[in-house]
Design a protein around this nucleic acid. Sequence first.
DNA 1: CACCAGGTCCGTT
DNA 2: AACGGACATGGT
Length: 269
Amino acid sequence: MVETETFAREYFDAESSVMCGQTFRYARADGGFFLGSGRRACLLRSEGEHTFLTANEEDIPYFTDYFDLGRDYSRIHGAALKEGGALASAAEKGKGIRIFNQQPFETLVCFILSQNNHIPRIRATVGRLCAALGERGEFCGREYFTFPSSERMAQEDAEFYRKIGAGYRAEYLVRTAREIADGAELSPRTKLTDFYGVGQKVADCVSLFAFHKTERFPVDTWLEKVYREDFGGTEKSRAAITRFFETKFGENSGYFQQYLFYYKRKSRE
DNA sequence: CACCAGGTCCGTT
DNA sequence: AACGGACATGGT
């Protein structure tokens, strides 16, 4: 049975939460979004003062956790406003952003694909990956594909991943999927950079988006721009820029990073 | 047509 | 430890 839950939109907005770059498994639908997570799917739509979550009844608890609905975001948002400057502006624009609790393997694969790549192309490649190796499902009259398991991904070779558009990242996917299928741990304590094709930035994204380690501040080309243009930074290395933000923002680093990413990417014209 | 995109690896200093 | 080129591919 499909069910719809209603939430206050103020700190839970569909558009900003989906478009702030944390997930690649979405499509616009019915004035909102059709979202995939692992084997499940849901619809998320904001209108007026409300946000509506539609999912199979048995999946409601899963998505309640997925959208991090047990956490008070007014304190986080308030702390960002107090910082002033670009961060305060970013927080106003992204007031309804929440950080999702995504599945570790899925997050790892998606962010391996994200490196040196465009978001539209990442989404398309993830879509082809699911269509090829996932299982067909249906939700609210829409066909979708689940995210493949590490075991299923481990059965394919690099040629396959090049064929779906992974480019030079194909070998990264093969080796990482096989390691995990063969029993390598993927938990909050795993040293993620030991996986082939996973550097500090991808590791930080997995830590933040799958394990909710909000003391992490992933630095990519957009956050480099923020650092230079909005914080007057002069350091060149990403390690130094990451250190700058994580020292400054502490436990709120991950939340503030999402405000800033959304703000910077939206203001590209 | 260069240049860039949610970087990482690897060989040189 | 730090730096720079190579790496696939499609959009601007």
